[in-house]
Structure formats: C-alpha cells, structure tokens
Amino acid sequence: MSTIGYDSWAVDLAEVGAVYPLQGTEWLMVILGVAFWIGWHRIQFVREGAHLEEAKHMGDEEKIKELLKKY
C-alpha cells in the first residue's frame, strides 16, 4: 500500500521529493507550535505571578523583613 503513488521503493528518492505524510503543512505546524509556545509561557507567567502574590501575604511581615536583612 502506497500513500504517495509508488508501488516500489526502488527509485531515486532525490527525484521523488518528500516522502512523509502531511507534506505542505510545515508552515501551519510552525505557526501552531509558536502559538502554543507563547500561550504556554503566558499561562505560566500568570500562574506563577498569582502564586508569588499569594506567598507575599503568608506569615508575619516583621519576621520576613528580619530574615531578609540577614541575607
């Protein structure tokens, strides 16, 4: 069974061209990958910011200031 129209692989592959599925969709995949990457970092930025904001209000403020003075 051939998905590219060849019955035999005994040909010069340099003349055949691309022999992988979804050929021609590389730019779409790059755009989707970059969008996912940017979205992931945005989500992480917001979640970590909320976590740090919550951590600022934990504990006694005076004890935290004293501990920070040591370092």
Rank of each mutant, 00 (worst) to 15 (best):
H57P: 00
L28R: 10
E66V: 03
G33S: 12
I43S: 05
W40N: 03
E62H: 06
A35N: 00
I43E: 04
I31H: 05
E54A: 11
I38P: 01
I31A: 14
L22Q: 13
Y20N: 03
K69C: 00
G5W: 08
F45D: 07
E62F: 07
G49F: 12
G39S: 10
H41E: 05
H41G: 00
F36L: 04
L32I: 08
L67Q: 11
T25P: 01
E15R: 15
I4K: 11
E54N: 12
F45G: 01
D7T: 13
S2C: 08
Q44V: 15
V34C: 02
G33W: 05
V19L: 14
V34R: 05
V16Q: 12
V16H: 00
Q44G: 06
K69G: 01
V34K: 07
E54D: 09
E66M: 10
F36M: 01
A14T: 14
W40V: 08
K65A: 11
H51Q: 06
G24A: 06
I4T: 08
E61Q: 11
E66S: 05
R42P: 00
V11S: 07
A55G: 00
A55N: 03
V46A: 03
L28S: 13
A50E: 14
W37R: 01
D7W: 02
H57I: 05
W37H: 07
E26P: 02
V16G: 01
V11H: 14
S8Q: 12
P21I: 02
